[in-house]
Nucleic acid binder design. Structure first.
Lengths: 236, 236
DNA sequence: CGAAGTATTGACCCATTTCAAAGCATGTGG
DNA sequence: CCACATGCTTTGAAATGGGTCAATACTTCG
């Protein structure tokens, strides 16, 4: 069922059954993608958007000189490139991290759904605005926080968002990101990420082992991060 | 005339005269604000949005510990808090930098206009998406660039966006930001911004004097910044 | 004219990067 | 199911970009 986690990380009311049906039946295609597969490439014209059903996806902005920075992470239930409906071409790449399952929607179909169900149209807009709020928080961390706070914040965000879509078990969640990926998200080098993770492990706060993150002490982690989930606009 | 610069920094077609009239006549109020006046404060419920007619405004994300990072800058013609229509409360402050003139719109009025003129509704969404694209670019700069590149990029962005709304004269533009403000935008300290500006001045690339920026050599500046304006989605 | 904010410069310090090498998993083909 | 390759993690030592602290000069404006 595609709509099970639909925009669950993106706040507010449950879908009505009509809305749910619209989401279910207007899918063009469901695809299974291997790890590190581009979903959208920068600067190419697109006519479809992808809803992430399973797995992770990341946004990357590149420079000519080959540097890349992750600017956002998407979890199951997120529409990863809804903004392409308006923008037509994107300024960045979106790539799977770990194997992923996506539902593909035609832009025309999404517009149609939005006209028929204005509440869904609002949710689409809302979803892209939440991406913006998350971007601002990342900008803040990169501009003003040291390495430990950045990593701690990233894990707090991931934990909270995954909890919203029911993907945490007992303080634990699957994490397909490598230390290099974390580095690209946190604006650090992989070497330094490794050192920060060691410190957090030694402090019995957070441990990452075999693609699984164990949040041992969320309170301490949130304190290090000065984490305030308000920016995620949880429906409460 | 309010609609003169309306979303001119936000791409695409001219307004029709009906759309223009809608923008002109549904304003609730036009206000002149002194420098450093909050337009919206984080975490308060809002029912109006502000269109910037003259002057600059900045977004700030804060932490409890009193740090603040600028996460975006708004120029004349920008809707600074259109996202509040959906979000209801914002995760950040928006503050004027230099005296500013804003047009205030009721959310209900904006929704009404959007229903009557779907092209305007699209433009509203587009405008918030462009904010997102700019956020991503800032995130990239903070995560992956050194101080000179960050400052150079910031000035390239400002120059390009101001040019789009006709506010540059001969490689020159009014800049109400202090070095402290630039530091808060670039994730640096004011002291270091000062040194970077000295280097750029000595390289005859950029000079800032008495609230005016003189871009002496845009080519060199853009090269330092690796500036590619694609993320600004200019219509041309 | 005085006061407050803003810009400038120097000296020292430290967080993070860089470079380099070794140890560990993970998985694929023989 | 072992062997070897590849990618990921870990650690150490040295280098550096930008921060911090502190003092002085310049501007702007009431």
């Amino acid at each position: 069922m595609i709509s099970q986690k639909f925009l669950m990380g993106r706040g507010r009311e449950q879908l009505s059954s009509e809305e749910r049906d619209a989401i279910e039946y207007s899918v063009a295609e469901v695809r299974i993608l291997p790890s590190r597969t581009p979903i959208v490439r920068a600067d190419t014209r697109v006519h479809v958007s992808a809803l992430l059903i399973e797995g992770f996806a990341a946004r990357y902005v590149h420079s000519y000189s080959g540097q890349q920075q992750m600017t956002g992470l998407h979890l199951p239930g997120d529409f990863v490139d809804l903004h392409s409906v308006q923008l037509k071409r994107l300024d960045h790449d979106i790539v799977t991290i770990g194997a992923a399952k996506v539902a593909i929607y035609d832009h025309r179909e999404l517009i149609k759904i939005g006209e028929k169900f204005p509440r869904l149209a609002d949710r689409f807009w809302f979803s892209t605005l939440l991406d913006g709020a998350i971007h601002r928080q990342w900008t803040f961390q990169l501009g003003r926080s040291g390495s430990e706070k950045r990593i701690a914040h990233l894990f707090c965000e991931l934990y909270t968002r995954l909890e919203m879509v029911g993907l945490t078990i007992d303080g634990t969640f699957a994490l397909p990101l490598t230390q290099q990926d974390l580095a690209e998200a946190a604006g650090l080098t992989a070497v330094h990420v490794n050192r920060v993770l060691r410190d957090l492990r030694e402090g019995a706060i957070l441990a990452v082992k075999s693609k699984t993150a164990h949040v041992l002490d969320f309170t301490k982690l949130a304190k290090i991060a000065e984490f305030d989930p308000a920016y995620l606009y949880r429906s409460s």
